Amino acid sequence: MPLLRPAFALMLIAGLGLAACSGNRDNTRPPPCPRVGILGDANKGVQYRPGPGRDLTDVTFETELLDYNGDCRYEDRRAVVIVRFILQVAATRGPAATQDEAQVPYFIAVVDKQQNVLAREDFVARIPFEPGRRRVVVGEELEQYIPLAGRHTSELEILIGLVLDRDQLEKNRRDRGF
Results as ranks from 00 to 15, higher is better:
113 K>S: 10
1 M>A: 13
55 D>E: 13
142 L>R: 09
163 V>L: 13
157 E>H: 07
121 E>W: 01
102 A>M: 09
86 I>T: 02
177 G>M: 11
129 F>M: 04
79 A>P: 04
79 A>F: 00
148 L>G: 07
20 A>R: 11
133 R>C: 00
92 T>K: 09
105 P>S: 06
158 I>Y: 08
55 D>M: 02
57 T>G: 09
164 L>P: 11
139 G>P: 06
83 V>N: 00
35 R>L: 14
15 G>M: 05
172 N>G: 12
45 G>L: 00
110 V>R: 04
64 E>I: 01
92 T>L: 09
96 A>L: 10
170 E>H: 05
18 L>Q: 01
50 P>D: 09
124 V>M: 03
162 L>C: 06
24 N>G: 07
78 R>A: 14
140 E>L: 00
37 G>F: 04
29 R>Y: 09
173 R>T: 07
122 D>C: 01
18 L>A: 11
64 E>S: 15
72 C>Y: 03
21 C>S: 15
148 L>R: 09
49 R>G: 07
145 Y>S: 08
125 A>Q: 07
145 Y>T: 14
31 P>I: 05
58 D>R: 07
110 V>H: 03
87 L>F: 06
32 P>N: 15
77 R>D: 15
3 L>M: 07
66 L>G: 02
82 I>P: 06
45 G>R: 02
130 E>P: 00
15 G>R: 03
141 E>H: 05
121 E>G: 05
57 T>W: 00
157 E>I: 01
151 R>K: 14
150 G>D: 12
105 P>L: 02
174 R>E: 06
58 D>Y: 02
126 R>E: 10
114 Q>I: 03
36 V>T: 10
56 L>V: 09
85 F>G: 02
120 R>I: 11
94 G>L: 11
53 G>Y: 06
16 L>A: 13
139 G>R: 00
103 Q>Y: 05
35 R>Y: 01
5 R>Y: 04
98 T>K: 15
118 L>P: 05
75 E>H: 04
49 R>H: 08
66 L>A: 06
103 Q>C: 01
142 L>T: 03
1 M>E: 12
96 A>C: 08
55 D>R: 12
152 H>Y: 01
39 L>K: 07
110 V>I: 14
147 P>F: 07
117 V>G: 01
20 A>L: 13
123 F>L: 15
70 G>E: 05
5 R>G: 02
113 K>A: 11
162 L>E: 06
173 R>E: 10
2 P>M: 03
147 P>D: 14
163 V>P: 04
47 Q>M: 14
132 G>M: 05
47 Q>I: 10
53 G>Q: 13
106 Y>F: 15
117 V>R: 15
29 R>E: 11
153 T>E: 04
94 G>Q: 11
105 P>C: 14
160 I>A: 09
8 F>S: 04
28 T>Y: 11
69 N>W: 03
171 K>G: 01
90 A>L: 13
12 L>C: 00
47 Q>D: 12
35 R>M: 11
14 A>R: 08
143 E>G: 14
21 C>T: 14
116 N>I: 02
60 T>A: 08
48 Y>H: 08
